[in-house]
Every structure is written in C-alpha cells, then in structure tokens.
Amino acid sequence: MRARDGDKQSFGRLVQQFQSRIFAIAYGIIGRREDAEDITQETFIKAYKAIGNLQTGVAFYRWLVQIAVNTGINYKKSLTTRQSVSFAEINEPLFQGESPEAYMERRESFARLQAMLSELSPEHRVVLVLREIEGLAYDEIADMLQIPLGTVKSRINHARDKLRRIVTFKG
C-alpha cells in the first residue's frame, strides 16, 4: 500500500508537469474548456492504469499525447449531438495585459477561429494540433494516428487553407 501511495505521488508530479500541454491538445481537438478538462483527466487516468509500460522522458510524453488524441477523438464521437455546439460557443480569451482595442481585436479573431475550426472534422483538428502546437513531423503524426503520410499532409494543408481565411476575411 505504501509503495502504491508513492507511485501516486510521483504520478501526481507528472500530471502537474504535463497537464497544460495535454489540455492544449484536447482543447485543440474539442474546443470547449470543460470537455478539454475531462479529456485531460481521462488521459491521465488511462495512463496510470497502463503504468506497466511507463517510460520516461520523451517516450512517456509521446505516449501520453497518443492517449489524449484517442480520447479526444472518441470523446467527440460519443457526443455527436454536441459537436456543433462546442466550437461555436464563444470562449472569452484571457486578458493578456494588452490595450482594450487589441483585446477586442484578438477576441474577434478568436471568434473567427472558432467558427473556422468548427467546420473542420475532429480528424483534421487532431493533425493540426499535432503539427502546429506539438510540432510533430508528418511521419510521426502518421505513426501516431496510423494513417498514411499522404493523408496527414492533405489534412494539415486543408486545415491550413481554412485557417488562412480568418486573416483574409479580416478586412
């Protein structure tokens, strides 16, 4: 029992260390804070249960990301009725000490982004988040999602095409 408690403590440190990055991935896939929190929690719980294959460092993090991605995609699937709602809800951006005008502009661009992302499928949002936020290479993404390299490329570029429009539409 004592050893188990020790496990949990050190696992708690891992949660603390990685939660914001895992949360960002979940948020990029799901677009709603509450859901992203759920996915983040679920990811760590699944990871803990599979702790037998616990690796350290980069490998562990990569493995965690994979669980988060799978959880995120399946989470979406189980909530198809809410799919259209999540990204459409306006999430107020955090105030970053900017001028009110700059804040309003950022808020507007966030709203446009949300609308744009809601038009993408979860599968597209997954590759986008893995490429643009996690900085993974195409072949790493293909490996993780078990899809062909060409599919990864076309999904990312489709998502980028879409994103470009938020700037084009601006004025």
Binding site: F23, R33, P93, L94, S109, I133
Partner: peptide, 12 residues
C-alpha cells in the same frame, strides 16, 4: 493566431 488561440486557454 491559431497557436495563440489554443495555448492561451488553460484548465480552470
């Protein structure tokens, strides 16, 4: 702008 959007939201 996308990166900013995804990374400025954090868990509550």
């Amino acid at each position: 702008s996308y990166r900013n959007f995804v990374t400025t939201v954090s868990p509550g």
